[in-house]
């Protein structure tokens, strides 16, 4: 477990550093990308393109790995259905993203850069997550593989 925690900490730090280097820690730059019909700033598209390259390779490697390097299995998302919750939830997320210029990663990374406004957003975000949990239909326990993050 100790080795796994080091992996997670390094991944988180590298992720946060990438957000800072790429300009994605700046809500105005993100809103510049979302301002498609104004002075559009394409930087976010370069970030997304850059991030997809290592991950596309990683998925190919993953197929040949029996287990991860510091864990026992790959409990990866298996859900396939394009249900209203997926589409509606993503649509809502996009609205909040547009309103604030922040998504979860940059908001949490910004706790070290602009602590007060970042903490305000993160607190509200956690409030929204708790609200979802409270409103979610009776907690039907799905097979654990289907409840991961994607």
């Amino acid at each position: 477990m100790k080795r796994a925690i080091v992996f997670a900490l390094i991944a988180g730090a590298l992720f946060g550093a990438g957000l800072a280097v790429s300009g994605m820690a700046d809500p105005q730059r993100v809103r510049g990308f979302l301002d498609l019909f104004g002075a559009w700033d394409p930087t976010l598209a370069f970030v997304m393109g850059g991030a997809l390259i290592p991950m596309a390779i990683a998925w190919r490697i993953q197929k040949r790995m029996p287990t991860p390097m510091a864990a026992e299995r790959f409990p990866l998302p298996t859900a396939r259905d394009l249900d209203p919750r997926l589409i509606g939830g993503a649509a809502l997320f996009g609205i909040g993203w547009g309103i604030a210029g922040l998504c979860p990663g940059p908001a949490i990374a910004d706790l070290a850069i602009a602590p007060v406004p970042a903490a305000t957003f993160v607190a509200a975000m956690l409030g929204g997550m708790i609200l979802h949990r409270l409103l979610a239909a009776a907690p039907v326990k799905q097979p654990t593989l289907e409840t991961s993050n994607v």
Partner: peptide, 19 residues
């Protein structure tokens, strides 16, 4: 953007292949 993106993608690959 590209460099930061590569860092983000590598971090995600560490999560996938490591954990």
């Amino acid at each position: 953007g590209l460099i930061g993106g590569l860092m983000i993608g590598t971090a995600s690959a560490i999560m996938l292949l490591g954990l």
